[in-house]
C-alpha cells in the first residue's frame, strides 16, 4: 500500500461502545483520523461536518439501518464502505452490497481480517479512479482493454459469457460482487444464480491451478464472488 499524503478520514458507526473502542484504536494505529457515531442520527451530523475516505457501518442501529447512510455518504466524498453485520442480517448485508457497499465483515471478527477488507476497498477505489487496466501475476494475465486472457501464455478459450464474468470480477478485483451484480454483466437477464454457478465453475476450470481450491475466484457464501489478485 502506498503511503498516503494526508491522514485518511474514517467514520465508525456502531451502537456498541466496545466495538467502537477497538475499531478506533485499530484505525488510529493505521494512521486514520476517526470519528465515532452510535446511531443513524449521530452519523448524519458527522457526515455533514466532514468528508470521509472510509465508512464502517453497523447494519442494526437502534434508530435504523446503517446502510441507509450510503446515499448521503455517496454524495459526500464517496468513501469506501465496509458494513458490519450479525448472523441474522444476511439479507440486509446482501442488499447493502447490491446498493454499493464495498465489502462486509461478519461479527465477531478479528482486527487483521477487518484491516485486510479496508485495504482492499481503498485500493479498489484508487483503481476505479484510473487504475491499471491489466491484471498480470505471471501465471494469469487479463487485459481488460484488449480483452485478452492468458494462462501460462496460452489462451484458455473462454466463452463470451465466461469472459464477461471474469472481466467484471477483475475490474473490481478485491471487492465482493453479489450474484445480482454479476448477473448484470451478462445483460441478458434470463439467467439465474444456478446458471451463474455453472459458469463460474467453468471459468475456474480454465484459469485456476486447483479448481477445487480456487485462488483467483473465491466464493462468499450466500453473497457472491470475489477476485483475489
Amino acid at each position: 500500500m502506498s503511503a498516503p499524503k494526508r491522514r485518511l478520514q474514517a467514520l465508525v458507526v456502531d451502537d456498541e461502545a466496545a466495538i467502537r473502542r477497538f475499531l478506533r484504536s485499530t484505525l488510529v494505529a493505521e494512521d486514520f483520523d476517526v470519528k465515532e457515531a452510535g446511531s443513524v442520527a449521530e452519523a448524519r451530523t458527522a457526515i455533514k461536518d466532514a468528508v470521509y475516505d472510509l465508512a464502517v457501518l453497523d447494519l442494526g442501529l437502534p434508530d435504523g439501518n446503517g446502510a441507509d447512510l450510503m446515499q448521503e455518504l455517496g454524495s459526500s466524498g464517496a468513501p469506501a464502505i465496509i458494513v458490519l453485520s450479525a448472523l441474522d442480517d444476511e439479507t440486509r448485508k446482501v442488499s447493502a452490497l447490491d446498493g454499493g457497499a464495498d465489502d462486509f465483515v461478519s461479527k465477531p471478527f478479528g482486527v487483521p481480517e477487518f484491516m485486510a477488507r479496508v485495504r482492499a476497498a481503498l485500493r479498489h477505489r484508487l483503481q476505479m479512479q484510473g487504475g491499471a487496466p491489466i491484471f498480470d501475476d505471471g501465471r494469469l494475465s487479463v487485459d481488460l482493454v484488449r480483452r485478452i486472457v492468458r494462462v501460462d501464455g496460452a489462451d484458455p478459450k473462454l466463452t463470451p459469457r465466461e469472459y464477461a464474468l471474469l472481466h467484471e470480477l477483475v475490474t473490481h478485483a478485491g471487492k465482493v460482487l453479489t450474484h445480482r451484480q454479476l448477473l448484470k454483466a451478462w445483460l441478458s437477464g434470463e439467467a439465474d444464480v444456478q446458471a451463474l454457478r455453472v459458469h463460474i465453475r467453468h471459468v475456474r476450470q480454465k484459469i485456476e491451478i486447483a479448481p477445487d481450491r480456487p485462488r483467483y475466484v473465491t466464493t462468499e457464501p450466500g453473497v457472491g464472488y470475489r477476485f483475489t489478485g
Binding site: E16, A18, I19, R21, F22, L23, S25, T26, A29, E30, G60, A86, L87, D88, K107, P108, F109, G110, V111, P112, F114, M115
Partner: peptide, 24 residues
C-alpha cells in the same frame, strides 16, 4: 435472534479488542 445478538455482541467486543491489542 436473542442468542445470536446477545452472545455475539460481547464476543465481537472481546475478539476485536484482543486482536487489536495483539496486532498493534
Amino acid at each position: 435472534a436473542s442468542l445470536s445478538h446477545d452472545l455475539k455482541t460481547p464476543i465481537a467486543g472481546i475478539l476485536g479488542a484482543a486482536s487489536s491489542l495483539r496486532t498493534y
